Computed example of a mutant assay.
Amino acid sequence: MPPRTPAPSPRRRTQTERKQDAEQRLLDSAVELIGRKGVSGLTLSEVGEMAGYSRGLVSHHYGSREAFIRVVAQSLRQRFIDAEQQTHPAPGFEALIANVELYLSGSSPISRAVNVMLTEAIVGGGSLLEDMRSFTATSRKYFAHQIRAGIERGEMRKDLDPEAQAVMILGMLRGVAAQALLDDKVQKTKLRAEIVATIRRMLAA
């Protein structure tokens, strides 16, 4: 019987890979904690502990608490951009609807954290307000782009104002999400079909 070939040793991760993994775990922990306690209740030591690292690792990587919160906000914004790009390949009506359905697909630490940060940004202002304004502008720009594409493809009414409709749609989605956080009886997934049908009636050619 031929000798058994030993299994190859697992590849050791590079320092860059270990750093990226640590940063992602810190961001994920921050999102979870913000959803539970809000931005104002977040401590950097708690983030480090929840991620499985030392209490001082967040300060070591990001410096100040404000700088870290800004990175969290920017990371959430990028996650939404990535999700939007993956929902539907062709711009237009169906891409918009796919994103609406994604927004209403249920509760997650990310969606809860975003709603908490939006609320605290309005009250507290500062750099968080600046970051959440940018987050909101990105979302409105996405919806307006899909509406313009839908008009060009003949799927949507020609008299629509893409920017105004984008504000209305985002307001509807965020309003439902906020109510779902306040009241367990409001379930986004159960409302999804009705909201999608309403948007189709609003926009369809």
Score class of each variant (00 low, 15 high):
1 M>C: 00
5 T>H: 00
9 S>G: 00
14 T>W: 09
17 E>K: 09
17 E>I: 04
18 R>Y: 13
22 A>R: 13
23 E>Y: 06
24 Q>D: 12
36 R>S: 08
43 T>I: 06
43 T>N: 07
44 L>D: 02
45 S>G: 11
46 E>H: 08
46 E>W: 05
48 G>C: 07
48 G>Q: 07
50 M>A: 14
51 A>E: 13
51 A>C: 09
52 G>W: 08
53 Y>P: 01
55 R>H: 08
58 V>A: 05
59 S>P: 04
60 H>P: 01
61 H>A: 10
63 G>E: 04
64 S>Q: 06
68 F>Q: 04
69 I>C: 03
79 R>C: 03
81 I>Q: 09
81 I>T: 09
83 A>W: 06
83 A>L: 09
85 Q>K: 14
86 Q>N: 13
91 P>E: 04
95 A>I: 03
96 L>F: 03
97 I>Q: 01
98 A>R: 02
100 V>T: 09
104 L>F: 06
105 S>T: 10
111 S>L: 15
112 R>N: 13
116 V>T: 14
126 G>P: 07
129 L>T: 00
130 E>Q: 10
131 D>I: 04
132 M>H: 07
133 R>M: 10
135 F>H: 15
136 T>Y: 14
138 T>C: 14
145 H>N: 12
145 H>Q: 13
145 H>Y: 10
148 R>N: 01
151 I>H: 04
151 I>D: 03
153 R>E: 01
154 G>D: 02
154 G>Y: 03
156 M>L: 12
156 M>S: 04
158 K>R: 08
158 K>C: 00
158 K>N: 06
159 D>H: 07
161 D>W: 04
164 A>I: 06
165 Q>L: 05
165 Q>I: 08
166 A>T: 07
167 V>A: 13
168 M>A: 11
168 M>G: 02
168 M>S: 09
169 I>N: 04
169 I>M: 06
176 V>Q: 10
179 Q>I: 02
179 Q>V: 01
180 A>R: 07
181 L>F: 10
181 L>T: 09
182 L>S: 11
184 D>F: 03
188 K>A: 12
192 R>Y: 00
194 E>G: 12
196 V>G: 03
204 A>M: 06
205 A>R: 13
205 A>Y: 04
